[in-house]
Design a protein around this nucleic acid. Structure first.
Lengths: 112, 112
DNA sequence: CGCTATATGTAGCTCCGCTACTTATGAACG
DNA sequence: CGTTCATAAGTAGCGGAGCTACATATAGCG
């Protein structure tokens, strides 16, 4: 998958991954790998700044903890984050509907 | 729809719009408006450079014509453009499958 | 003549994911 | 004990693609 495709949809992925559970950054990356069947292998340089962005936006909050001597910053959704996730899911639906319409029905067939 | 979402999918839209017919830039914009039910209203500053990119990549060719005193650059798909369209459709399918999987199945339900 | 629709184009900005790198600890291996 | 790998977080800087804003030109309408 070409990397540009993620543009504008990364937030939705992160919010969805945090939906109903608290995870730290490294675990989020692994969860996305698992959840996507290996298709998504996001580098830390993508995920960590994105999480800070989401925190600045008030969609997630973070707490530090130390597990086995290693520091973890655990994120969880806020209420606005929940709403944002909902909005992202709706936007995703609309987006795919539009693109599907053009890719499928914009060609030579259709116009029936 | 937020504009960033288009990132990496615009080529697919343009190629699909040109699939089976020849259109000039302005008509492509209108066709995308119609084909998307008004959801896609791409500015010329987006479409024209993108078409030139596609031409540079060999996916489309263009011919000038004059209709009613106005110059038109009419684009049509090349064979590699057809293949590219096919590849874009496949990539789109894969992309939506992956994201749908995470958005739908990455949350608290699933894990069955 | 002015305004709108048609038609194409470019310069520059911004945003965001990616590359590449740094820092730090624990565990395993020899 | 030293090396290496897995875990864990982070930043600096790049690249590119879509967008804003602007420039240009003709036809047609009032």
């Amino acid at each position: 998958m070409k990397p540009d495709a993620l543009r504008g949809h990364l937030d939705a992925l992160l919010l969805a991954t945090l939906d109903g559970k608290q995870l730290h950054g490294y675990a989020i990356i692994e969860a996305l790998q698992l959840g996507s069947g290996g298709a998504l292998d996001l580098p830390t340089g993508t995920v960590y700044p994105a999480l800070r962005r989401l925190e600045r936006a008030g969609h997630v909050t973070s707490d530090w903890s130390t597990v086995g001597g290693r520091k973890r910053r655990t994120y969880k959704l806020t209420q606005t984050g929940q709403k944002a996730l909902h909005a992202e899911r709706d936007a995703w639906r609309e987006f795919t509907t539009v693109i599907d319409g053009v890719l499928g029905g914009g060609g030579k067939w259709a116009q029936t």
